[in-house]
Structure formats: structure tokens, C-alpha cells
Amino acid sequence: MSQTDDLEGLRGLINEPLSRRGFVMTALMSGFTVATAHAQAGQAIQTPADGLVAGEVKIKVADGDMPAYRAMPQGGGPFPIVLVVEEIFGVHEYIKDTCRRLAKLGYVAIAPELYARQGDISKVTDVQQILRDFIAKTPDSQVMSDLDAAAKWAVADSKGDPKRLGITGFCRGGRAVWLYAAHNPDVKAAVAWYGPLAGQTTPIQPKTAADVAGDIKVPVLGLYGGADPGIPVAAVEAQRDKAKAAGKTVEIVIFPQAGHAFHADYRPSYNKQAAEDGWQRMLAWFKTYGVA
């Protein structure tokens, strides 16, 4: 294979020049997303910010200032870093609270708003519109670059320890975790929560998570629901087998009674037992592989 062919195969995951579109959404939404039907905000976990430095920040990238949410302990440092990758619904209160939970445990947790260039996702109520106008139009190379920028910002501006970098993400964010594990060898450990493995590829999203299973550079823990209608157990097991056949460090945990989005405590899909078990497994994974 020539070098040109090799680069073409990585197209969309390498750092290509970014467009100069700029950021349409310049501030994070408040509260919970309006796009999820039957959202149950009243049941959601609420983690107070006392003892933390927590709130919205701006991360400078090539085409502007990317809004993000950051939570970290007060004082001290350097702290281990966890990149928190959103679902398709934006960095809303559920994602912010997840950052605060991690900060309470001693991490600096950062959730960048990866879809801010496409519009104001806080005002969109139609899930299909989000998929069409936000998700499908966001290049994977841009997501990788934005996550790189968030990690660097954590070191420069949030007392983050570059030698203790982890990443976790939910749903579409779980897919990004698999891609980032193949992109950034500086990550110590990655945890993907029910990240889609298959799907349609496009010129700006040229590889699925399944495509990169044999290319991951860091240990990956995958947390999946056995009752998830969109991600068959057979596909999850195939992901594990492909990665292990390539000599990669990967562990897959399937919660038989859990469906999709079982960690999303603001939705009817929430499965408390699976969510809490998965959370503890995530923390143990970070500790085992040097993030904690």
C-alpha cells in the first residue's frame, strides 16, 4: 500500500484543515435538552458544585472559541483529565452533572460542545433534525481535533496532568471514544457507553467504530445493554473479538436487562443498577490503566 493510499484510508480521522465556518452556538444551554421525549428531569442525579470550580469555559480552536463545560476540584493539582463526550443532545445538564461527579472524585472533567458550529442545538426539538443538520454535518476529523484541543486546554488552563488523560462518552459520544482511542496514543484509558459500532459512512465520517476496532492504541472498556435494539450483542462481541485478534486491550461488559442510554438518568431508559455498576467499572478501568 502506498503512503497516499494509507492516508486516504485515514481520511476524516487525521487533522485536516478546518473550515472557517465559525461557531453559531456560542454558549451552552441551561437545564436539560428539549429534544428528548418524555425527559424526566426530576429523577436525574443532581451533584452540587460546592468544593469545585465548575462552569462554562471557552476553548480556543483554529476557527474560534468552542464552548465547553469544565468541573475540577478547588486548589491543588495537577489533576487527572477526563474528556466527557456528549450524546447527540448537546452539553446539557446531564452531561454537566457527569462532569461534576468526576470532579468530586478528583478529576478535571471537560465536555466540549462538539456541534456548536452547526447551530444552536438547545432550540431543536426534532431528533431527526439533530441527526441530519448537526450529527451528519460534523466531520470526524473535526471531532478529533476538538477533543485534542480540550485535552491541551485542560493542561494549560485547568491544572490537568497530561500524563493522566482519559476519555468517556455516551451514545454518539461512545462512538467518538472508539475513534479517539484509535487517534490519540496519549490517552491512558477509554470508556465507551453504548457507542454505535456500525452505521453509514460518508466522506466526512469515513470510518465506523467497527472499522477502527483493530487500530485502537489505548485500553478500551465498552459498556453495552443486552436489550439495546440498535446495537446487537453479536456486533458488540465482534468488536471485542476484532480488537483482541489485533492484540489490543479491550473489555466488553454487557448488561443483559439494560437497553440503550441506560446511564441517562433524566430519561425513561435509565437503569439504575446497570448505570451504577458501569460507573464503578469505569472508575476501576481508569485506575488500572493510570488515569486515576
Rank of each mutant, 00 (worst) to 15 (best):
G51S: 12
M25W: 03
Q43T: 11
V57G: 01
H38P: 01
A39P: 00
V53W: 03
V24M: 03
A41K: 08
E56G: 03
S30F: 04
K60I: 09
A49H: 07
T33S: 15
A27K: 14
A44F: 08
A27Q: 14
A39C: 05
T33R: 03
A44I: 11
F32P: 00
Q46T: 15
F32R: 03
A39I: 14
K60T: 15
I45H: 06
K60R: 15
I59Q: 01
A54C: 09
T47G: 00
G51Y: 07
A54Y: 07
L52S: 02
S30M: 06
A49F: 05
M25F: 01
G51W: 08
G42R: 11
T36E: 10
I59G: 01
K60G: 06
A27V: 09
F32H: 14
V24Q: 03
F32D: 01
S30T: 12
G55S: 11
M29C: 03
Q43P: 02
V34R: 15
V24L: 01
Q43W: 07
G42K: 11
T36V: 12
A44V: 13
A54H: 04
Q40P: 01
H38F: 13
G31C: 11
D50Y: 05
A35P: 05
A35G: 10
G51N: 08
L28A: 00
V34W: 03
K58H: 11
G31V: 12
A39S: 12
A37P: 10
L52T: 02
L28I: 03
A44S: 13
A35I: 10
V57D: 01
A54F: 07
A41C: 05
I45N: 04
I45V: 15
V24R: 00
A54E: 09
A37G: 11
M25E: 03
T26G: 00
K60N: 13
A39R: 13
L52Q: 08
V34M: 06
Q43F: 09
T33W: 05
A35Y: 10
T47L: 03
T33K: 04
K58M: 09
G31F: 12
F32Q: 05
T33F: 07
L52G: 02
